[in-house]
Computed example of a mutant assay.
Amino acid sequence: MSVQVAARWVVLDIEGTLTATSQVHVVLYDYARPRLGSWIREHGDDPVVVEAVEQVKAEAGLGADADTDAVVAVLHSWMDADRKATPLKTLQGLIWSQGYARGELTTDYFADVVPALRDWRSRGARLAVFSSGSVAAQVASFSHTTSGDLRELFAGHFDTVNAGPKKQRASYEAIAGQLGAQPGQTVFFSDVPAELDGAAAAGWQAVGLARAGEPFADADFGSHPVVSSFDEVELEVVA
């Protein structure tokens, strides 16, 4: 069954929506995990890294003099728990950006994704991303894909730093404000029902992705319309 959407702005989640969860939990996590310690040690004069390390210590209750090994142990535990902690996402994003730039990482999307995004963009829709992964990681992931460099498709990137938590109404209000988008002419696609709730509370349209084999394939999406792929979405682009 298809879902009809009339929108000017299309905002997209990534994990479980554009890419398989394994792209993050296996490919990207496995790449970052052994590199966290060396990255922190080798970039000790980078203000972004320094701030991220301080945030880890504060959130984990570590002392100010805790060494890098202690910080890395916390980061690994957060990865094991799939915790969306901002300092973890910041450090992962830096490492992944380098991996993509070196050609050591490539993003693979569900088969329906890139054709749909290119079609929507060609018809005048504006595309943006809202992911728990850092903006730097998002941009890097779209730069090296099995379908080429897709960065030009997107007009905005948002994460938990420049927008806020993905399940809160205020985050979607902030995104709409930054994009200059009308809430009623904006649609959010995600595989997580609680994120759709947040978008809908802000006046957005919200559509669930229940992809076979993904963690939320059998989730209760409540009143939100649900599709199993973008092939089932009929988008009318609003001028």
Rank of each mutant, 00 (worst) to 15 (best):
M1E: 13
V3Q: 07
Q4P: 00
Q4A: 14
V5W: 00
W9V: 04
I14R: 00
E15N: 13
T17L: 08
T19L: 02
T19W: 01
A20M: 00
T21S: 12
T21C: 03
S22K: 11
V24I: 12
V26N: 03
V26P: 00
L28T: 00
D30I: 01
A32T: 13
R33H: 08
S38C: 01
I40S: 04
H43Y: 03
D45W: 01
D46G: 06
P47T: 05
V50Q: 14
E51H: 13
E51F: 00
A52S: 11
V53G: 08
A58W: 12
E59F: 01
G63E: 13
D65M: 05
D67F: 03
T68Y: 11
D69M: 08
D69A: 15
V71H: 10
V72I: 06
V72Q: 06
V74W: 04
M79N: 11
A81Y: 05
A81W: 03
D82Q: 13
K84R: 13
K84Y: 09
L88A: 11
L88K: 05
T90I: 15
T90E: 10
T90R: 14
L91D: 12
L91S: 09
Q92N: 12
G93N: 11
L94I: 08
S97Q: 14
Q98H: 13
G99K: 05
E104K: 04
D108C: 07
Y109W: 12
Y109P: 00
F110W: 06
A111E: 15
V113R: 08
P115N: 01
L117Y: 06
D119P: 00
W120G: 01
G124Q: 06
A128W: 03
F130W: 02
S134D: 04
S134Q: 04
A137T: 03
Q138R: 09
V139F: 00
A140M: 10
F142T: 00
S143I: 01
D149T: 06
R151C: 13
R151H: 01
R151I: 04
G156V: 05
H157C: 00
N162I: 07
N162W: 09
A163E: 11
A163I: 11
G164F: 05
K167F: 12
K167A: 14
Q168M: 14
S171V: 07
S171E: 09
I175Y: 08
Q182C: 14
Q182I: 13
G184C: 08
V192G: 02
G198R: 02
G203M: 11
W204P: 11
Q205G: 13
A206D: 08
G208P: 10
G208H: 10
A212S: 13
A212I: 11
E214S: 09
A217M: 05
D218K: 12
S223W: 02
H224F: 10
V227Q: 01
S229A: 09
F230H: 06
D231R: 14
L235I: 07
E236S: 14
V237D: 04
V238H: 10
A239F: 01
